[in-house]
Design a protein around this nucleic acid. Structure first.
Lengths: 189, 189
DNA sequence: TCCAATCTATAACGATCGCTACACAAGCCA
DNA sequence: TGGCTTGTGTAGCGATCGTTATAGATTGGA
């Protein structure tokens, strides 16, 4: 166990991390300065650095937090829904909601930050795996190109995030989602 | 006519503007410093400022040049193709090519720069107008929601640009384009 | 040939960047 | 109550940002 002596921290670490996450989410990594972060959180630079490390480590932790909160709906859908079709429908539907929730930055942090290329690739592979599984079990036609379909879903979600950032409404994103879903191959009965 | 006296400019203005355009295209407005630009162009700051004005004016001119060259295919397709369906098919097909042309930044400059929101809105309205025209003339079913369809096309193109930036191949983008096109409403015969 | 105009090159401006040294305040343990 | 530890607040570090003053180089016209 730690010694736990000395002055107590004067701020809520998780609350500050949430404010930092929203700042990076809205403005991006580069455009968000440490001075911006100290201004929005009220935490002075030395305290920020002591609690989180340097700016890049802070960004990394903010992204991790984002994935476990605001951005967790994708992973949840892929885990909880039995079929790829249901998972994708849920992802697109919930994305329309999440990307336009009031009092939050619009769109997706992961899809907006150029430096998070690796996480986006992971997401594509997750979609592709889910589709491939359904093709293997016969829930989807044998000729279905899983990679192709996964890329189309990824493109749709990225397009929705971009539109949301530009101010698209929830209804508009729902329409885009519904249109995209109409290309889904007919399930094997 | 101008007086035309004094020392001649030691660089090709248009060639330098092209190099600047590619730099902004690849790295974005904020992430591209004036020092970067002087390094890649070989033009010293005072010459750059005399020829183009400040960084923001230089960016504006670079974007204009981009629209008249690399990014002109969209406007051309909307102008030259008789129907919305043909225009959109050509836009998506050429986007797959343009976004993955070797020895160039990948994706679209306009779709990648957050500050060019207005140009993106213009593009959506152009798509929507083309679709609306076909609905009015009967080339598309009367019930077609032009705004909805335009947003779906916009989402697809943005998704393709994002995927291209992440390294997607030309064939992959073509597949995404083809999948998206399959939702197009059947033309009125 | 000398002037006037224009471009180039160096160097530096003030502002801001990410980050930290330093002094002080606030806590627990002896 | 000291003494040790840890967080806070200020102030400033060197580096880089966008931009420009200044001096020299190069041109065409008188």
């Amino acid at each position: 166990m730690r010694a736990m002596v000395g002055r107590k921290r004067g701020f809520d670490r998780d609350e500050v991390l949430d404010q930092v996450t929203r700042a990076f989410w809205r403005d991006g990594y580069q455009a968000t300065s440490v001075a911006d972060l100290t201004a929005t959180t009220g935490v002075n630079p030395p305290s920020l650095y002591a609690a989180f490390g340097d700016k890049h480590a802070l960004f990394t932790e903010a992204v991790a937090r984002y994935q476990q909160t605001y951005g967790a709906f994708t992973t949840r859908a892929l885990e909880e829904e039995p079929t790829a079709r249901q998972a994708v429908e849920r992802v697109l539907t919930e994305a329309a909601i999440e990307y336009t929730t009031p009092d939050r930055p619009k769109g997706c942090l992961v899809l907006s930050a150029p430096e998070l290329h690796g996480l986006r690739d992971q997401a594509i592979r997750a979609f592709e795996g889910k589709i491939r599984h359904d093709v293997a079990t016969g829930a989807l036609p044998a000729g279905t190109d899983a990679h192709r379909l996964a890329l189309f879903v990824a493109a749709t979600v990225r397009g929705m995030s971009s539109l949301a950032r530009d101010g698209a409404t929830r209804a508009e994103l729902h329409d885009v989602a519904r249109t995209a879903l109409s290309v889904w191959p007919a399930p094997v009965p």
